[in-house]
Amino acid sequence: MIPVTLEHYLIVSGLLFSLGLAGVMTRRNALVVFMSLELMLNASNLALVAFSRFNGNLHGQVFVFFIITVAAAEVAVGLAIIVALFRRRQTVQVDEITSMRL
């Protein structure tokens, strides 16, 4: 069995981040975009915990708590805005919200 090193965690974290970024770039549904954004934040969480373990101090783990809190607040606010948009427009497709153009 191979020992799990810092690199393994970082590769998973990098994959999560890239997946999230790809989702934000390519998906058109605001909810899925929002989900992908959460994935990107979780990529940071994973890397932070791994770094914290291998750096030998707890700063990273403390940081994770703050990120989780902020992400929760962001979801609360974000979903409320997306629901309000759906009520007004009956759509959550981001390429259909284009009333402001030059």
């Binding site: 929002f34 990107m40 962001e74 974000g78 805005i81 997306i82 309000a84 948009l85 007004r88 009333s99």
Partner: peptide, 15 residues
């Protein structure tokens, strides 16, 4: 609302 959604998505991306 549109401004809100755009600010939200791009703001969260930058965070």
């Amino acid at each position: 609302l549109e401004a809100g959604v755009k600010y939200l998505i791009l703001g969260a991306l930058s965070s």
